[in-house]
Amino acid sequence: METTKSGPKGTITMYPEKVKLYYLEGQPEKYRLHWSRGAAITDEDIIQYAAQASHVPESAIVLAQEALFDAIDYFCANGHSVQVPYLGTFSVNLNSKVVETAEEANEESVKRCRLRFYPKRRLKAACNKKNIRMNIVDILGLKK
């Protein structure tokens, strides 16, 4: 995805909605833009788009995607961070509670394990608001 100066690459639809700010004194009512999310995109859609956009055979993309998922699964389950080209880094982290003695600090004190994703700079830049056109529509009819 190129992020040239030619203009926005994506478009999202937004509409004004009324919100009540409960955390402020007097609970004032304000307005803000809310964006309507598009349809959920599955792996098959990604494969189709990727095959059309880059002249790589669909079968190769399917194989590479499956192998990529297996690799992330295997390496992350063993505590490695995985750098995926053009995408970012997947890594595992765990949170634990503080206990009084060293003996108590064991598997039971672990609260949760998390999979985290750190996108590449290229991907971050592509998702910048400069590359997205905001299509504002008054769906709720709030404007007079």
Partner: peptide, 24 residues
């Protein structure tokens, strides 16, 4: 392939879609 997948994810995300990335 990874570049194509990253581009596809970016395209759908900046158009307001939620993109599934396998079981992850």
């Amino acid at each position: 392939c990874t570049m194509a997948i990253a581009d596809a994810i970016t395209f759908y995300v900046i158009n307001g879609h939620r993109v599934s990335f396998g079981k992850f």
